[in-house]
Amino acid sequence: MTEPTTRDSLFCDIALAGRIERAEAQLIAAWNDAARRRRGGSAGFAIPIAGGVASYAEPDSPINKIAGLGFAGLPDPAELDRVERAFADRSAPVQAEVAGLADPALLELLADRGYRLVSFENVLGRAIGGDAERVAPAGVEVRPIGDDDFDGWLEVVVEATLHPDTQGVPWPEEFPREILENAERDTAGLMRRYLATLDGVPAGGGSMRVADGIAQLTGAGTAPAFRRRGVQSALLAARVADATAAGCDIATIVVQPGSRSQQNAQRRGFDLLYSRAILVRAPVPS
């Protein structure tokens, strides 16, 4: 597989970070809406807060979080009170993801309310435009899928998530298989899904959401038996090519610091834009 030609690094200022975080908050809100439709509407919530969103879908869901804060003013204490009560009513901790380019006063505000730092995640990105080459090693094929191929895609993506690569900082959370399957099913209509095969056998999968000129490369994984074979790089290349064709000017991906995913993305021309601090507040009884 050929590596991308040399390109200028993408510089991320506060305006670009705010644009990326708004897209993230919009994704979480739409995803939450799909989960609530599946569960009957009343079980979860998505509360707008200071330009971001506080989301609760179901117990142990990966979208139970506050996203997108710090770029539209600080949240009012009364707003945070409401959000924290909503999580506490469901015996759930509050997890806030705060971009490193967000208003620094937000971290102080959350710390004063009992939030503690538990982890980080990295947001990578690259400018796109012009021609984008679809490259893949011999035997690897990546293609978008529809509903007919969903079950095979779901199996390989969930299997990859349940057996994460051990390089770098591990994800701070683990999720039950049923919850992961629910979450992936809820993305129907929100994302484009891609299946990677190696010699015709399902080996990995990923997804992409296009919004506001941003291609959010979401949820990629390779089944353990097929790792170190170029599957992830092929998935990246295919999605970047489709994002370019869709008129996007930037592609982003969220990875754990020092992970194989970060290494693969940087080899494909992605730059570290900023980190997100993951802060958690334990549920407080009403």
Rank of each mutant, 00 (worst) to 15 (best):
A196Y: 08
A196H: 05
V94I: 12
S119Y: 08
E173Y: 13
T6L: 15
A92I: 03
D249C: 11
L180I: 04
V231P: 00
R36V: 08
A241L: 09
D81M: 13
C12P: 01
V255Q: 03
L154M: 05
R126K: 14
A30W: 03
H163C: 04
H163K: 07
G18V: 14
L180W: 03
I63L: 13
G129V: 07
V94H: 02
W31T: 02
S55P: 13
L69A: 05
E121M: 09
V158Q: 01
D149M: 08
V254I: 12
G114C: 06
M208H: 03
A17F: 06
L195S: 00
P62N: 11
G114A: 09
A136N: 00
A23H: 09
P285F: 12
E133K: 14
G219I: 07
E141G: 09
R90F: 02
G230W: 05
A43P: 00
F270E: 01
G205R: 05
E174A: 13
I250N: 06
L124I: 08
G41C: 02
G18Y: 11
C248Y: 04
E3Y: 13
A99Q: 05
L80V: 05
R85S: 13
G52E: 05
E159N: 12
R36D: 13
R134A: 09
R209Y: 10
S275A: 15
D151H: 12
A203H: 05
S91C: 11
R267N: 09
L10M: 12
P144G: 09
G221V: 02
Y56G: 01
A88E: 02
A23K: 07
G41Q: 13
D13F: 10
D13T: 10
C12A: 12
L109W: 10
G219F: 07
E181S: 03
G152S: 03
T166I: 03
E97C: 15
R193Y: 14
G146D: 06
I66S: 00
R227F: 02
G139V: 12
I47Y: 02
A54T: 07
S9P: 14
I63T: 08
Q167N: 04
G40C: 14
R38T: 12
V240P: 00
E21R: 05
A238G: 08
R19W: 14
F150I: 11
M1W: 11
V157S: 03
L69S: 02
